[in-house]
Amino acid sequence: MSDYILETKGLTKHYGGVHALVDANFTLERGEHVAIMGDNGAGKSTFVRQITGVEQRTRGDVIFDGAPVHFTGPLDAREAGIETVFQTLALADHLNVPDNLFLGREKTKFDWLGPFRILNYKAMRDDTMAGLVKTGVKIPNIKNSIAHMSGGQRQCVAIARTATFASKLTIMDEPTAALGVQETAQVENIIRTLKEQGESLILVSHNMRQVFDLVDRIIVFRRGRMVANLRKEDTNGEDVVSYITGAKTGAEFEGAA
């Protein structure tokens, strides 16, 4: 079994003539938390979209859990064990917490009934509770609809999905961008809990403090290319900013950008 949960080799994405992502060689160890930073349009989200199958890459390889993968869509990636938490929440407002967690992959009984197969509420509730306990998410009443919850609680529900389904890799695309200070703290606590439990994580973030608080390693993208791969101990905020702005480029990436 490979030490890497995720590896990309020469991952490239062109939108017509625009080279949004060029030759990204990326590795993520099991249990490692890595941040992806960079300016707007640097290729962070493009990179994530290639891994999660939202878009199809122009060329390059993605090796997930030791085997090359070609996800045809986000569902495919989820089936394989990659859970993505988007900035815009993919939650159904009028459903409650377990319903949202299990939407599209409900636990059921009497499957021969086809679309009218019976929901196994108890099993889903138990799994939801286990997932919430694992992430330390507190929800006043999981039977209430999501519409009545704060942005932070909703984001926590989205994150709790990853724990509920024992995913192999969690990707968060700016999970706290739309949240207040206290809600952000809540989400960050959950991320720490995931770390303790050995979940692998890719965190896309603009927040320097958050990144230094939470991750082991920082990857910087600039103009579609990876320009730095920094261990947290070996760098500081100023250093990272100079990579982001282009004042510096990592030695191994020299000539890339």
Binding site: L132, V137, K138, P140, N141, N144, Q182, E183, Q186
Partner: peptide, 18 residues
């Protein structure tokens, strides 16, 4: 995690029921 608004337990807080 320190929940900001002091929300209670994990399950079915009856006072929070709709």
């Amino acid at each position: 995690p320190s929940t900001s608004d002091g929300v209670g337990g994990l399950t079915y807080d009856k006072s929070k029921r709709q």
